[in-house]
């Protein structure tokens, strides 16, 4: 199962740090990288981890008016950090896929009015993996929007943990933030989820939700009527639950490869 196929499926240039202008870029084999997306630029960035490394940190600074789509694929079980600072009117969309027992910390600093941050992630932990996923969204100024949605599945004897923080500073008025954590456990697995809100401004719209085990029973019925056994239907539904994130990944082309990677992992559920 090589994560390379995700990269190979798109036409991307390797990035060793520095400025990104338009186009599709890949960061791989790098432990510590800082990247800047220039003002007004539109770029796609794929961040892959490296076998045998000990940690990975990617820092991204997006200057005013830039648009950035990030696909972050984590297949190794070490520490990963993704740090994103956003100026005014920056739009960042991140799709994150975690298929190993890794520690992943993502921080988004919304520092300019009109910034918009969207993160859709999924984690799948099997066997006896231990995962720890954190997403911190810091609204440092007002008039920004953030949407974080993370889905988690753990099976076997795995343990998954999700912590999400939405922090709204005192002067960050007219913030619009949402966070959602949805999870399913199978077998002897355990999932801890702790979505948190720390709010110091009042003219805000902020909500979060966390669910465990909420699956649509009607969908199971539908699949069974098409001849799929109850057990297979449930499995299919859970696969769909996680795959949904990938299907909506913002970088065209690598979606299929990511699906394959995901399916390989889901077969181990």
């Amino acid at each position: 199962m090589s994560v390379d196929r995700v990269v190979n499926s798109v036409d991307a240039r390797t990035l060793h740090g520095g400025d990104i202008s338009s186009g599709c870029w890949v960061i791989r084999d790098r432990a510590d990288v800082d990247v800047v997306v220039k003002s007004g630029e539109r770029a796609d960035l794929i961040v892959i981890d490296t076998a045998g490394a000990e940690c990975q940190r990617v820092g991204i600074k997006a200057l005013s008016g830039a648009t950035l789509n990030v696909v972050h694929v984590i297949t190794e079980s070490y520490d990963h950090k993704l740090d994103i600072s956003m100026s005014e009117h920056v739009e960042v969309s991140v799709t994150q896929l975690v298929v190993a027992g890794a520690k992943v910390n993502t921080k988004a600093h919304l520092q300019g009015a009109g910034a918009r941050f969207v993160l859709n992630g999924s984690f799948v932990h099997t066997d006896d993996e231990r995962g720890d996923v954190t997403v911190d969204v810091l609204h440092e100024v007002g008039d920004c929007v953030s949407r974080t949605a993370y889905r988690g599945v753990a099976s076997g004897k795995a343990q998954g943990r999700f912590s999400g923080l939405v922090y709204i500073a005192q002067d960050a008025q007219r913030t619009d933030a949402e966070q959602l954590s949805r999870n399913v456990t199978l077998g002897d697995a355990v999932i801890h989820t702790a979505p948190q809100m720390e709010i110091y401004a009042d003219d805000v719209r902020c909500s979060h939700g966390a669910t465990v085990g909420q699956m649509d029973a009607e969908a199971i019925m539908y699949m069974r009527q098409r001849g799929i056994s109850a057990a297979d239907a449930k499995r299919l539904q859970i696969q769909g639950f996680v795959a949904d994130t990938i299907l909506h990944a913002p970088i065209a082309g690598c979606g299929d490869a990511m699906m394959e990677l995901l399916m390989d992992k889901l077969d181990r559920l």
Partner: peptide, 8 residues
């Protein structure tokens, strides 16, 4: 007919 997210 119901939706089944993520399942093509």
């Amino acid at each position: 007919p119901v939706e089944i997210p993520g399942v093509t």
